[in-house]
Design a protein around this nucleic acid. Structure first.
Lengths: 96, 96
DNA sequence: CAGAATCCTGTACGATACTG
DNA sequence: CAGTATCGTACAGGATTCTG
């Protein structure tokens, strides 16, 4: 998981790395309601491509904000972690 | 000057637009000490190119965070605006 | 269903040279 | 001193096809 040291000279760079880009905040927003499956997330963000959803979910996992749970052969559930839940009010206070 | 409406669905996008990228926070940091001339800024950020410094300063002006004052033929001074000064503590609280 | 694999494009950023 | 102008590159993100 990414930490503040040593490659970041400024925490802002880390924040931008973690929630920057086109999709991460939107994904966190959609997971706010509760755990969702991959295609369920996909449907709630019609404009995202599968590639980007896969990729951004993977990065959110690496940053410890989202968890992935395989519940069956073809049943995967994504949810916000405790850290993700702590981040949400900070983000969403700024969103309308 | 950019506003919250209507092209941003989330204020985070605006924040990233305003202070995102590789150089903006660093420029604001360097202007924290007081007004500086173009080359003075350039020297305090040896790795930035003239092109990027020019470009980012222009964007910071458009966002109303930095002011530009021509003091002579070849003497230009950059400084943080009131809004820039308000933004600084928020940013720098996160920086070490 | 939940992805992986390719290929492609736009643009942020860099290197370098030049100028009033 | 304070920039422009051009050219080149790397990478984020998109479109499409394929798979266990």
């Amino acid at each position: 998981m990414k930490q503040l040291q040593p490659e970041y000279t400024c925490a802002i760079d880390l924040v931008i790395d973690i929630i920057g880009g086109k999709w991460k905040v939107l994904i966190l927003w959609n997971l706010n309601e509760g755990p969702k499956r991959f295609n369920e997330l996909k449907r709630s963000m019609p404009e995202i491509t599968q590639k980007m959803l896969t990729q951004q979910l993977k990065e959110l996992q690496e940053h410890g904000l989202v968890s992935r749970t395989a519940l069956g052969e073809s049943h995967v559930e994504y949810a916000t972690t405790d850290m993700g839940k702590k981040l949400q009010p900070v983000l969403f206070k700024m969103c309308r």
